[in-house]
Computed example of a mutant assay.
Amino acid sequence: MIKILLVDDHSVVRMGLKMLLNNHSDIEVVGEASEGNEGIQKALELHPDVVIMDLSMPHGKDGLSATSELKKQLPHVHILILTMHDDEEYLFQAIEAGASGCLLKSAPHDELLSAIRSVASGQAYLHPSATRRLMEEYIGTIRQSGSGGGSYNSLSDREREVLTLIAKGYSNKEIAEQLVISVKTVETHKGNLMEKLQMKTRPELVAYALKKGLLGYGI
């Protein structure tokens, strides 16, 4: 059973999502919140598997701030951002904040269910246009630098594991726990990755992982 917490400032949206999701035997909505601060409190109380987080909430803490804070306090929780904005700036900010996925509110119900199940299983999920934008950004960075970055073959097995987990949205602490190593060692591996692949940001790593098929799906 995938336990879901809904965080959205529109009660009608929460009601519709709850009715839709509770119709599936493997999903249960265990709580709701109308803004980010309340969402963090509910998550600490209920320990959901997936938080469906609205990006724009004018009252209280917004979705990006709440995502960042929630990942610090509950690093194992998976956060799926729901947004009306098909904008690469929001996409990159959501990834940097620690979201495991990003989905447009206009997406079909089947895609929402697929996204929930993907992030709950530890996979990343991006809607198709977001994936294209991320890859375009990555390709643009390569062109500007005049190279294709470092070679995947130059990475150690451990560095590849760390790369995959970073791209899936896990924090350094969570990666350390999964691999049974120290946070400092994770940071060292991350630094080595950035140097070998000639990259500077998390979105670049996510795009690279997508290109290599490390997240379970590609473009």
Score class of each variant (00 low, 15 high):
Ala130Met: 15
Cys102His: 09
Tyr170His: 14
Tyr125Pro: 06
His78Asp: 04
Lys18Pro: 00
Leu70Gln: 00
Ser154Thr: 11
Gly98Trp: 09
Ser118Val: 08
Gly63Pro: 07
Ser68Tyr: 05
Ser25Arg: 11
Asn22Val: 00
Met15Phe: 08
Lys211Trp: 10
Thr164Tyr: 11
Leu82Gln: 08
Leu103Phe: 00
Thr164Gln: 15
Asn37Phe: 03
Gly216Leu: 15
Ser145Glu: 05
Ala207Leu: 12
Lys196Trp: 02
Gly39Asp: 04
Asn192Ser: 08
Met194Leu: 14
Ser171Ala: 05
Leu20His: 00
Leu193Cys: 04
Leu134Phe: 09
Leu20Glu: 03
Ser114Gln: 10
Gly122Met: 05
Leu215Gly: 09
Ala107Tyr: 07
Leu44His: 13
Gly149Asp: 01
Met53Leu: 00
Val51His: 01
Met53Lys: 04
Gln123Phe: 09
Leu5Ser: 12
Gly150Lys: 01
Ala124Ile: 01
Leu163Met: 12
Gly98Cys: 05
Gln144Glu: 12
Val51Gly: 02
Met53Ile: 01
Glu136Arg: 11
Ser11Glu: 15
Asp26Thr: 06
Asn23Lys: 15
Tyr152Cys: 11
Glu174Arg: 07
Lys211Ser: 14
Leu5Pro: 09
Gln41Leu: 12
Glu45Gln: 11
Glu69Tyr: 01
Ser121Trp: 06
Arg117Ala: 00
Glu32Thr: 00
Thr201Tyr: 09
Leu44Ala: 10
Ala43Tyr: 03
Ile4Asp: 14
Val206Gly: 06
Thr164Gly: 14
Lys211Leu: 13
Glu88Ser: 06
Ala209Trp: 05
Lys173Val: 07
Lys61Met: 12
Ser129Ala: 07
Ser25Ile: 09
Pro128Ser: 14
Leu104His: 03
Ser114Met: 12
Val7Trp: 13
Lys212Asp: 10
Glu136Pro: 08
Thr131Lys: 13
Val12Trp: 04
Ile219Gln: 14
Gly213Ile: 06
Tyr152Asp: 15
Ala167Met: 04
Gly63Val: 07
Leu210Ser: 14
Ile166Gln: 05
His109Cys: 05
Ile181Trp: 03
Arg202Met: 05
Ile2Ser: 11
Ala209Arg: 08
Thr131Asn: 12
Lys168His: 11
Ser106Trp: 08
Leu165Trp: 14
Leu21Ala: 03
Ser156Arg: 08
Leu214Pro: 10
Gly146Gln: 04
Glu159Thr: 02
Leu70Ser: 03
Lys211Asn: 14
Gly150Arg: 02
Leu210Tyr: 14
Ala120Lys: 02
Gln41His: 10
Val183Asn: 02
Lys3Phe: 14
Ile27Met: 15
Val119Arg: 00
Ala176Gln: 00
Val119Gln: 03
Pro48Ile: 15
Asp9Ile: 02
Leu165Gly: 13
Leu112Trp: 08
Ala94Lys: 02
Ala33Gln: 15
Arg202Gly: 03
Ala33Glu: 15
Gly101Phe: 01
Met15Glu: 10
Gly216Ile: 14
Thr67Met: 00
Ser147His: 13
Tyr208His: 12
Leu155His: 06
Lys212Ala: 11
Ala66Ser: 06
Pro203Leu: 13
Arg14Phe: 07
Val180Asn: 05
Leu46Glu: 14
Leu44Asn: 13
Thr201Phe: 08
Gly36Pro: 04
Ser100Arg: 05
Glu111Ser: 13
Gly122Leu: 03
Lys42Tyr: 07
Ala167Lys: 06
Ile219Gly: 15
Met15Asp: 08
Leu193Ile: 10
Glu35Tyr: 02
Leu64Arg: 01
Tyr208Val: 12
Asp8Lys: 10
Phe92Pro: 00
Asp9Gln: 07
